[in-house]
Amino acid sequence: MEQENTIEKSSPLKKEAWEWAKALLIAAALVFIIRWLIFAPFIVEGPSMEPNFYTSERLIVNKIIYSMRKPERGEVIVFHATKDKDYIKRVIALPGETVKVEGDKVYVNNQVLDEPYLKKALEDAAKKGVPYNTRNFPEKKVADGTIFVMGDNRSNSADSRDIGFIEYEKVVGRADLIFWPFNKISLVHF
């Protein structure tokens, strides 16, 4: 009796199911890589970044950019302020620079910092005859490996004036995109 050589053919349904399973596994792996290693969502809480960011706005934070370079002045970053809390602030001064806040002016290396992102807020405060910033900061040199950050809402922000310089290791990433609410979808400008 001769043994038949048979090749078992899988059914088209099984083949299709396997292809879908592979596609879903690849998609899940990509979501994991993108979500945990490259980008992360962040929800703005509190008024510290008004008038540029408001409570409940949702942002995409670029987590990989600072593995390629250091934060730059004017960029909006998210960092670990405490073990359980992340903050969003703007980079004002870099390592080795001196920084001082006097009234509505911020000085970096004894030069007034140009802050176009606050132009309208500063003009509105001046029209009302009130200072935009009510919290000064004495001149200090930014320590190596750290940055000085401030909220855009200068009188209502817990920032480097309160919590000190921010170590590079605590920086999560740069805010790149507002994606919620839909009517405010936009790239973050620096």
Rank of each mutant, 00 (worst) to 15 (best):
residue 59 L to V: 00
residue 72 E to L: 12
residue 59 L to T: 00
residue 86 D to V: 05
residue 77 I to C: 06
residue 72 E to I: 07
residue 60 I to E: 00
residue 74 G to Q: 08
residue 83 K to W: 15
residue 89 K to F: 04
residue 91 V to T: 07
residue 78 V to Y: 02
residue 75 E to A: 02
residue 90 R to M: 04
residue 57 E to A: 02
residue 71 P to W: 11
residue 71 P to Q: 10
residue 96 G to Y: 09
residue 69 R to V: 13
residue 91 V to D: 03
residue 96 G to Q: 09
residue 93 A to N: 05
residue 91 V to E: 04
residue 61 V to R: 03
residue 70 K to Y: 13
residue 94 L to P: 08
residue 56 S to V: 02
residue 96 G to S: 09
residue 75 E to T: 04
residue 79 F to D: 04
residue 80 H to F: 12
residue 61 V to I: 14
residue 65 I to N: 10
residue 55 T to Q: 10
residue 68 M to E: 12
residue 72 E to Y: 12
residue 79 F to N: 01
residue 73 R to V: 07
residue 78 V to F: 04
residue 71 P to S: 08
residue 75 E to F: 01
residue 74 G to A: 05
residue 98 T to G: 11
residue 95 P to I: 07
residue 63 K to N: 07
residue 85 K to G: 10
residue 60 I to Q: 01
residue 84 D to Y: 15
residue 59 L to G: 02
residue 82 T to D: 13
residue 78 V to L: 02
residue 62 N to D: 14
residue 86 D to L: 11
residue 70 K to T: 13
residue 67 S to M: 13
residue 80 H to R: 15
residue 66 Y to R: 06
residue 73 R to A: 12
residue 87 Y to I: 06
residue 57 E to V: 04
residue 82 T to E: 13
residue 95 P to G: 05
residue 78 V to H: 01
residue 98 T to W: 12
residue 70 K to M: 14
residue 90 R to P: 08
residue 55 T to K: 06
